[in-house]
Each structure stands twice: as structure tokens, then as C-alpha cells.
């Protein structure tokens, strides 16, 4: 039997995109994770992809949002929201109205609180399942999506989730394609009015540029003076390693084998 989604044409996908911020220069840009989300959506065959952004339209954000259009989109829906608003109601209402099968978002925003809560709140409000840390969507058949979730160190886990669902991606998802200037310039930003709810909590918090976190000191709690002396006089780590010269290959191999064992990389 043909997949259900193919009967009525295609899989409706909405990607939530935000305005990113370059970590060094602070310039607006495509948010890295959101761009990966768009790339993931683009890689789905027979998917009809919509871009949705909630926020203010100004010169800085427009350049960043056009970055998404440059990935090959004609338009992007923009829910007009003032700075410091809670975008949850606006986005949720928009999704309820549009009724996509799959919503893809980046894990966290690069500006504002950046708590990564929005997808969870949306999932809770819409009553949809949520899967985080996606690496790929393998297949969508009969309303069930087979997903690959990224585990640390390149490992993957296969999951199945019933649609409609929300999935989030992070740096393990495929790298986004280049944003081309031409489509970015031509694409339309379709501004829609939406309900506004102030984020009262956020206004109360004090925000300041991130301080460098203090490096944790190695505190040696030793019972005896000798142990304390040894700890203080111990060789600093990384100050030149062990060099084996004039050894038989077997000896060298044994030393490497020991290190690999200690590090636990041999399976």
C-alpha cells in the first residue's frame, strides 16, 4: 500500500527558524541549528516545507531571515512579535491553524533566553510527541516517521514516532547548504499579525555578557603531609610525553595497546 501521506500529495513540514547571532561578532545570521533543521527538511523527499519565524522584522533580522530563503524558498511566514514577547501562543496558534505533520526546530536559539524550551512547550500544548537531537529522518510511511537520533561520538539510535510530531536538531544534523544571494533577495517575508503575550519573567532577570567560568581547581584532600607533598610536586600533565626509542615493534605496540585499553577505546 502506498504511504498515506503520498495520497494527498506530500508531507507538510514546518521549520521554526530564528534569528541567530555570530558568536564572535554578534552579527545576525541564520542560526546554525535552525539552518540544519531547514536542511533536514529540504532532504525529505516529497515534503512541502514552510518556514515560520516569530519575532520583529527590522534591518538586522531581515538579513538573517533572508539567509533561510537563500536555501531555496520562495517565502517565509513571519509572525510579528515585539522584542521580549513570549512567542509560544503565536507559534502554537499558527501551527494549529496550518496543521503540519512534522515540525522541525533547532534545539536552542542563539539569542534571548535560549533555553530550548519552546519545542517542549509546543509539544505539550499541541499534545504531540517530541524527539530531540535528530541526525536524520530515514523514512515517513503511513503517518509514522523513522528517525535517527544522534548519540555522542557519532553513534546513532533508531526511533519511530507517530506523526504529527515535533523534532529538534543540533550540531549532529547535516550541515546546512549555502544560502544563495539570489533566492534570498527575491524571497518574500510574509508578515502576519499574531497574538502577543509579554514575557514578564524575562524582563525581571538581569542579563549580562557571559563571564568566563572559573576553571575548577584540583583540590587534593589528603590525609597525610606526604600525600599533599606528592600532589603538589606531581608532574604537570601534558608536559611532554613518553618517547620510546630503539624498541622492538612489539614493545611499542604493547605500550600503545596499554594506553588504548586505559582510555577504553578498544571495543
Amino acid at each position: 500500500m502506498r504511504p498515506e501521506s503520498h495520497h494527498n500529495g506530500s508531507l507538510a513540514v514546518t521549520v521554526l527558524v530564528s534569528v541567530g547571532r555570530h558568536p564572535l561578532t554578534g552579527r545576525g545570521r541564520r542560526a546554525d541549528q535552525d539552518a540544519r533543521a531547514v536542511e533536514l527538511a529540504r532532504s525529505l523527499t516529497s515534503a512541502e516545507v514552510e518556514l515560520l519565524h516569530a519575532g520583529r522584522l527590522d534591518e538586522g533580522s531581515e538579513a538573517a531571515l533572508r539567509g533561510y530563503l537563500g536555501m531555496g524558498f520562495d517565502s517565509l511566514s513571519l509572525l510579528e512579535q515585539p522584542v521580549g514577547a513570549d512567542v509560544l501562543p503565536a507559534v502554537a496558534e499558527s501551527l494549529e491553524a496550518a496543521g503540519p505533520q512534522l515540525v522541525i526546530a533547532g534545539e536552542r536559539a542563539e539569542q534571548g533566553e535560549g533555553s530550548g524550551l519552546l519545542p517542549y512547550l509546543l509539544a505539550e500544548r499541541l499534545g504531540w510527541p517530541l524527539v530531540s537531537g535528530l541526525a536524520a529522518v530515514e523514512d515517513v510511511t503511513e503517518g509514522v516517521a523513522t528517525l535517527l537520533q544522534a548519540l555522542p561520538r557519532g553513534q546513532r539510535r533508531r526511533l519511530q514516532v507517530r506523526l504529527p510530531a515535533i523534532v529538534t536538531v543540533d550540531a549532529a544534523a547535516p550541515a546546512p547548504r549555502q544560502s544563495a544571494y539570489g533566492p534570498a533577495r527575491r524571497g518574500r517575508l510574509e508578515v502576519q499579525a499574531a497574538a502577543v503575550m509579554d514575557d514578564a519573567d524575562l524582563a525581571q532577570w538581569q542579563a549580562q555578557p557571559a563571564r568566563k567560568r572559573p576553571k575548577r581547581l584540583k583540590i587534593v584532600k589528603a590525609a597525610s603531609a606526604r600525600d599533599r607533598f606528592k600532589a603538589a610536586a606531581a608532574k604537570a600533565e601534558g608536559g611532554g610525553g613518553q618517547v620510546l626509542t630503539d624498541v622492538a615493534p612489539e614493545e611499542g605496540a604493547a605500550a600503545i595497546f596499554k594506553l588504548l585499553k586505559e582510555e577504553g577505546v578498544l571495543r
Binding site: G70, M71, G72, Q178, A180, Y181, P183
Partner: peptide, 8 residues
Amino acid sequence: LTLEHGNT
């Protein structure tokens, strides 16, 4: 290729 395809 760069400005329209985005394929550098």
C-alpha cells in the same frame, strides 16, 4: 553558481 545555486 554561488549567487543563484548556492553551490560553492
